[in-house]
């Protein structure tokens, strides 16, 4: 299952480019000069302690938060400068898997998946919508849950349905916010396998926010360690593993003890 640790750097422009990014909440600085490029077909895992600003970073990529300073470019477009329509058009190419899945609890699984599709793609008949929903559920291995309500699903199933909901719009970029948090090791392994499957089937580039080293090791081409508002180290798992950085060592040791 371990992913080949090689850097994907190609001649093309990066699908996500972040430069000089700063963000504070009140007087609390969260991000203090972030630079990162995500290339087509690449998976990058962002490691960091709770509260280090990992989720804030991906929320700025998708335009949920605005940066105080710096530039976030997605598929060549400056996210902060886009108007609502342009931002929505860009968001159609980005899949966002939330930490707690964020399934609409008043809708069943079918409606959860059909909702973004019917709202964004006009003139689809019932059969086409059903087929697309079934295809997305098939991809995450939960076709039999189509009529269930989110409250009847387990944590792992909810994560999978959340990923299926993003896949229905066939995104080019996937952003995973803590995909394995709160899951047992077996279910975590299933989610890791699913992340890799999504990349191979849908040819996505992914940013995976996590503090789970197993997840980072098995899904990412590169790993970026976020500490004190900056990336203290970016590289392959092996490069990071032999680091002299005390913080990084502590992080690695803690994960292995766990």
């Amino acid at each position: 299952m371990e992913r080949e640790n090689r850097h994907i750097v190609n001649d093309h422009a990066p699908v996500i480019s972040i430069s000089g990014l700063f963000k504070s909440f009140g007087e609390l600085p969260v991000l203090q000069g972030i630079d990162l490029n995500l290339y087509e077909g690449e998976n990058i895992a962002i490691l960091g302690k709770s509260g280090s600003g990992k989720s804030v970073l991906i929320k700025m990529i998708v335009g949920l938060l605005l940066p105080d300073k710096g530039l976030v470019t997605v598929l060549g477009q400056n996210v902060a400068a886009l108007n609502r329509k342009a931002l929505d058009r860009l968001r159609l190419h980005i899949g966002f898997s939330f930490q707690n899945s964020a399934l609409y609890d008043s809708m069943n699984v079918f409606q959860n998946l059909a909702f973004p599709l019917t709202m964004n793609v006009k003139h689809l008949n019932r059969l086409q919508v059903t087929r697309a929903v079934e295809e997305a559920l098939e991809a995450v291995g939960l076709r039999d849950k189509i009529r269930e309500m989110p409250s009847d699903l387990s944590g792992g199933q909810r994560k999978r349905i959340g990923i299926a909901r993003t896949l229905i719009l066939k995104p080019k970029i996937m952003l995973y916010d803590e995909p394995t948090s709160g899951l047992d090791p077996v279910t975590s392994a299933d989610i890791i396998e699913l992340i890799n499957l999504v990349q191979s089937q849908y040819h996505t580039s992914s940013l995976i926010i996590t503090h789970d080293l197993t997840c980072a090791k098995n899904t990412a081409n590169r790993i970026a360690m976020l500490s004190k508002g900056k990336f203290s180290k970016i590289g392959s798992f092996d490069e990071l593993f032999v680091t002299d950085d005390d913080q990084l060592k502590a992080f690695f040791n803690y994960n292995f003890l766990q």
Binding site: R89, L92, F98, A102, P116, M119, N120
Partner: peptide, 14 residues
Amino acid sequence: VTEQIDAMEVSAIN
């Protein structure tokens, strides 16, 4: 608080 509104936003639904 369960990020369902954010989920709508990122699905290009206002």
